[in-house]
Nucleic acid binder design. Sequence first.
RNA 1: GGGCGAUUGGCUCAGUCGGUUAGAGCGCACGGUUCACAUCCGUGAGGUCACUGGUUCGAAUCCAGUAUCGCCCACCA
Length: 906
Amino acid sequence: MPELPKAYTPRDVEGAIYERWLAADVFAPDGAGSTADPTLEPFTIIQPPPNITGSLHLGHAQRTAVEDLMIRHARMRGHRALFLPGLDHASIAAQFVLDGILAKEGESRQSLGRERYLERMHEFVARTREVMLAQQRRVGASADWGRLRYTMDEGSANAVRVAFTRLYEKDLAYRTEALVNWCPGCQTSVSDLEVVATPETGTLWTIRYHLIDPATRAPEPEATISIATTRPETILGDTAVAVHPDDPRYAAFVGRLVRIPFVERDVPIIADEVVDRAFGSGAVKITPGHDHDDHATGLRHGLPAPTILADDGTIAGTGTRFDGLDRFAARAAIVAALEASGDLVKAEPHEMVVGRCQRSNDIIEPRLKTQWFIRTRPLAARALEATRSGATRILPERFEKTWEHWLTDIRDWNVSRQLWWGHRIPAWYCPDGHVTVSSEIDGPVACATCGRPATELQQDPDIFDTWFSSGLWPFSTLGWPDPTPDYATYYPTSVMETGYDIIFFWVARMMMLGIELTGTEPFHTVYLSGLIRDPLGQKMSKTKGNVVDPLGAIDASGADALRFAVIHGATPGNDQRFGPAKPEQARNFANKLWNATRYVVGARPTSIPAGAERRLPDERHLGPAERWLLSRATATTAAVDTAVAGYAFGELTRVLYRAIWSEYCDWGLELAKVRLSDQDLPVEVREATWWALVEVLDTYLRLLHPVMPFITEVLWATLPHRASDPDLLIVARWPGVGERDPEVERAVGTLIDLVTEIRNARASARLPAADWLETLVFVPPSLGPTFEALRPAIERLARARPLRRELTPEALTAATTPGDLAIIVGGGEIEVAVRVGRPDTTSVELDRDRLEHELAEAEGYLVVVRERLANDAFVSRAPAPVVEGARAREAELDDQVAKLRDRLGL
RNA sequence: GGGCGAUUGGCUCAGUCGGUUAGAGCGCACGGUUCACAUCCGUGAGGUCACUGGUUCGAAUCCAGUAUCGCCCACCA
């Protein structure tokens, strides 16, 4: 058995332990070191593959901790537990980062060209990849590195091609010209989800358009119609003016033409119910090429939809002097020109919502493009069915409402991106405009429609939205579309864990694509974590500079502490604030556990050889303290099981923290010390005590292992093991729940109170901490044997010796002398008189204060419980056990009050 | 405009099915070098559970409403 260093230094243990796990090949469910039971169902966890763009942040560390907790628990339960690690190529995010790097070098995407740009990208991700994998290991992820996957590897690429082809064949993917969200900064379209609605104060300009005189076909100087707009530059794309059909103000205008300035185009005034009569002037300009509403209106009325913007956001193709100007410069120039011509009626501040690019923060421009879309409605319907039927459960449940809402109103998903880094869309176009979609790695041999050879076909230059490949993750990583053994064994998966912020981006897409392509829900449970915020509750972001580096926290307090801290603070779906105090608390806990183990290992009776095989404590030699410890361990195991079953991982840490620190260390070890150090006791008794300590500590190390894997592994190695135990805790078996002993728990619990009360009296009376107190005590016969068995321990812990036991309350009263401190424990069950050597007035007064305080408290509670019992409705309608409980409580308080009053001479 | 969440000691948070005296950590006060641990030990103080009303024998917990903060969704120019 390895020696334990005196001081706990996380850094020294963690790296070495990880290497041991790797060497033992225990992470893979089918690894050489696995102890999984193949007859049990496999357990697979789906982790969001982190973006390969830089380094892990604290949120990743938290995710990893929770995922690893689940996988380690399942592994110890004997399931084939698969934690498949991965990385996401993060197409647009990666390009954004790389473009930033290139900009500093004076280069750009355009200056390099597609090929060289992609080379740079491969170099970049090769570096970040290693950093990120190392970080995951540092956190302790027991992932199966042999199955590591990447969304840009050949398996993913194949899955993407096959998935898209199948969707296309079922008409679930289609190509069409539509208004897409165009980001002039990123020079690509983005999906609706990537447009962030930002409230801003803009300007609402009111502008006069001149009506056309039907006779002269020239604009009339005086007859005008006023329209309101927040984007005057779109005037250049106007093809109509609309009014409400029932608006009497404009009834006479409908059907007439107006002249659009600058482009000098005459367009009709149309009637359409889309117009809000109350807004602005009640007349609205229609720009079908650059506005979603207007586009729909344009379709209803057969209006042309000219595009007036180039990809870079400059005005183009209008034939006006504004061509070539940036959209915002053009806006200013147009406003100035209108003002000069007298057609600008007014300009007023206006609260509005602007769509900005999630990535670059540029203002998104709707514009027409021919692109690929996924028909989401039928897919969404099946995803909804899965959650409604319970086939897939979302935790916490309240997110099902959000889920329902989004999937019910879902719009088709634009998957084309005009970027370079990503999976190329496997669609080829022939000169005649035929479309051929192929899942073949080398593309089609010929046009599917007219048979033109591949050499005459052009592949779509676009790539897929990065979430398209992520959406295939649960099955593409297991070999799909091939019927591999992994796919057969581990799919559908068990739990998918992620932050609630990507429920639509990712979870919904996996569900939709998974059900469609594999015919089954990709996982049975969606566990949504909250986000980590800084101590002030702000979202962590690089620009704010409040990002906590998980490695910094690990360096300071250890990976175990970081894991404990983030799991401790986590309630599913709720955000948590994170400051340095949390890992410190967890580190202290680890330190406590370390020292407790050191004590236990060092307290081994010499009659037990160092390498002894593990034995259960001999029942016949167990004292109440040992029975209490064993019973509490069973209670703790049950509580931990309940917490795990309910995904209440924060609760799990609290249960263990309390069990280990407040019970095992504070009382269990302290009670045991007395027996272990008493050389007069038979050796069998001391051995039984020690084996009980070992048994319970072993249980707690197992229970804590999924949360704090490193330290538990190290400590466990120093304990004697059973022949059936594996070498490593990581593959050891999860503890079973045994029988509790309520009698012992109650009795020992009361005696613990006794010790606490004596300490309290000592502190209140300001008696020196080091003094031994001479004490008389009455304990009822029911507690007698337990008391006698624990008397030496109680004496030592209360520092009260001799602790003279009186056999009746009367005897105690008779033996009490004036000046003794009085203590009433457990509702009057136990009474104590503490003899103060030289009763000085101060201590007597202080003690009186304490008793009066206790009396007031007890009387307060007594009033409450009596009122309740005086209520006939309560007595007759509350369940019997509750009423009985109240009665017992009343009797107890009554007794306590009487005794306290007696002691106070009242 | 819809929807969701939060509001519990000074701070950060738990609190399952409504049921004895609402818990923890940090902080605070007082006291401690007893051979596992000062990253510690002991004792204690501190809460009308945001507010209003309701349901109930009984509400931090369920219902309705209000307030404050936060988030998500949403094509009013």
